[in-house]
Design a protein around this nucleic acid. Structure first.
Lengths: 192, 192
DNA sequence: CCTTCAGGTCAACAGATGTTGGCAAACGAA
DNA sequence: TTCGTTTGCCAACATCTGTTGACCTGAAGG
């Protein structure tokens, strides 16, 4: 079916995508203009339209994202939280896709929906495998702490959060993630 | 000096400010247009410029914010985290200023700087009074969890985070805040 | 060779945006 | 009343936005 043969324009396509990710990550959805992205990729703005249709679809292509959660099968339970926090830090610093998603998701409804999908399909299953009860709630709590750290460290750049090194962050966050994912429900069982 | 006598236009000024807060909170800095704000306030866009100079100063006026941290002097130490989490939830749901700050701060450098100032002047002192060591780091961690919750619950609207009620949130977050503010440094003392 | 067609540039469009200046009406002090 | 000030609206500006279509260019296939 989708026999994707290599095209002569693949280089340009890739350059556009790379520039788009950078701009969306740095400026958010509305301030990242097609013209600026095209200038970074050193091509004409109309090429962006030809290859990606419109700005929304360009963003969708640039914000394709895989959390790449590690297997965790051989990891002892006590070490899982630290491994997870370290992995999240890697994913944040590895490329700019997550930053683009966060910066855009705050003001663009489509980007927010994309984040909800990633949460549901890529983080939810992890919690279902680990958490004894209320896995979705627990996954949401982990997301709140991890996204909050990224917000404070990479977006708002609160000085003390920027100053912490990787080991500090893992030491502080791992117990929190452990409580959220594996700990007992605080405040007694839910009585509705 | 600044003898501020009441003016006939105070009502208009207030209407502009209220509309500005709503729009900035709902749309972020760039998508909240002067024209839309003026339409909400049912006045002419040029009035916004007359009374607030330009968009940046309008935002500065609309994003004036006081965390209003409670005194905590009579509160026993074990209850401080829960009281704090409850207070933050109140401040988020009370008016739209925090939402405006968050949505704008993610894409607008001036708004981000404002958030850093609020953090430094209004949350820092609290940590200095409570935390035995590294108060700024601890304040930063609390900010990461509280802002992360707000991000997931009010901005991204991750379903499980939206679904939790106030008591749930306090039960889950208070232990985390307690560890960050009052708990021992995890992973042993810092050896630089 | 000629034909075809994808890759790429240029100029322009319609609409929205922040911002400005002019002008009319209402108000308050004299 | 009269006069200056405040309050408000209207029209316009320059610029930037996403987007479009006409046109050129070079390579590949016959």
């Amino acid at each position: 079916m989708s026999e994707e043969r290599p095209r002569r324009s693949d280089g340009t396509r890739a350059a556009i995508l790379r520039a788009a990710r950078e701009r969306f990550a740095a400026d958010g959805y509305e301030r990242a203009t097609i013209r600026a992205i095209a200038a970074d990729a050193e091509i004409d703005p109309s090429m962006v339209m030809r290859y990606y249709g419109n700005k929304e679809r360009l963003f969708a292509a640039a914000a394709e994202f895989d959390l790449r959660l590690p297997a965790l099968s051989g990891v002892p339970e006590e070490e899982i939280p630290a491994v997870l926090v370290g992995h999240f830090l890697d994913r944040w610093e590895g490329d700019e896709t997550l930053m683009a998603l966060l910066r855009a998701g705050v003001t663009n409804p489509a980007a927010a929906e994309r984040m909800r999908q990633i949460f549901a399909t890529q983080l939810g299953p992890l919690a279902e495998r680990l958490a004894p009860d209320e896995p979705h709630t627990r996954a949401g709590l982990v997301a709140s702490q991890v996204l909050g750290l990224a917000l404070c460290r990479y977006v708002l750049e609160l000085p003390p959060v920027v100053a912490m090194d990787r080991a500090d962050l893992i030491s502080w966050l791992a117990p929190t993630v452990r409580q959220y994912l594996l700990g007992p429900r605080p405040g007694g069982p839910k009585v509705p």
